[in-house]
Design a protein around this nucleic acid. Structure first.
Lengths: 187, 187
DNA sequence: GGAAGCTTTTGACATTAATCAAAAAATCAA
DNA sequence: TTGATTTTTTGATTAATGTCAAAAGCTTCC
């Protein structure tokens, strides 16, 4: 739990009260590899912080499995659109490794937002930071060749390549597994 | 200004004090077509609301002009990453039509965030809504053919096709102008 | 009204990446 | 270890899109 608060404290300063309330609101989960956090076409009701392990968010499009996001330790996992809009989404979240997570429910978070201005701020800053990451991901793909996408990922997130199967990396980059395999062999 | 508050009021309820403070913080701008709101490689210091008119956010990549976002009336225009991170960005914002805008500076907005919990909430909700839009845009392009991207845009935003030159639409969709022209002729 | 400057279309061709199929390699469990 | 399963690589072919070049169509503004 301390690492979670260390991450959050980069965004805001907790008052003793807000920290206690937040700590009381989160649930610790220790789950095996393959566990499904969010099922297909359901509403995502929790925001997850990955203390250790690895999660994958993916969906099926025309029968194909497309990886949307990968969350390693010290980052968040959530079916964002569903969590925000309160609507079911096709995105599934599964664990690629046995993981320790902290979960906070949508309702609890809303309650904390209302009770504590600084937690409302935390929420704003977390979403803002997510926005920056998402824009980065978009730019990395827009008008980029398959090879350059792979090179960018190698630079920014080399550890993922060791922990995540190639097919998942490929769809994350918006290319096929075969193309990615060929790119790798040409280095 | 009333339409601006009407849009904002979909997210929060203003207290008389916060509404007055917000109203005092925004500046009305009436600017001609072609005017550049944010220059290349500068920090974006304002969040713009488009009351009437049309803005385009774009950047140069390998010498090519790539349209990143288009904001019609009743929406926001901002070089988001720069505004959030306070760093210069390659993104340029220009007016595609003579426009009436309301601008609020980063500093003023931060001040209002600190003074009014409900404006902090407004900020969180606006960024959240931007996040949903961005995800939608990403999904519309990920593993989609040029033709389907165009069809999706026609469905969701047909008016843009009448107001924005084809080349700008094409790069917005992540395809070349020639390809888009050929797609259009095949309908 | 017409020349100048944009924007859009069309054509020929090159390139990239997808698809389909199968083999090779790696991983996992009994 | 060994067989079963999954993952990755390789090959042949096809389809989609980009590039370069030029023509055609629109604006606009003296």
């Amino acid at each position: 739990m301390e690492t979670y608060f260390a991450v959050l404290s980069q965004f805001i300063h907790f008052s003793p009260e807000s920290k206690e309330a937040f700590a009381a609101a989160i649930k610790r989960l220790e789950l095996p590899k393959g566990y499904v956090l969010v099922k297909e076409d359901t509403i995502c009701n929790y925001l997850y912080f990955v203390e250790s392990g690895l999660t994958r968010t993916y969906y099926f499009k025309d029968g194909k499995d497309i990886t949307d996001w990968i969350s390693p330790e010290n980052s968040f996992a959530c079916s964002i659109v569903s969590f925000i809009t309160r609507k079911p989404d096709r995105r599934i979240i599964e664990l690629l490794e046995p993981s320790v997570l902290y979960a906070i429910s949508y309702e609890k978070l809303e309650e904390l937002y209302s009770l504590f201005h600084e937690i409302e701020r935390l929420g704003r800053l977390l979403v803002s930071s997510g926005m920056v990451q998402m824009q980065q991901k978009f730019d990395d793909q827009h008008f980029e060749t398959a090879a350059r996408r792979y090179q960018t990922l190698m630079k920014t997130n080399p550890s993922l390549l060791l922990r995540v199967p190639l097919g998942m990396i490929a769809s994350f980059l918006g290319i096929t597994q075969e193309t990615l395999s060929r790119i790798r062999s040409q280095v």
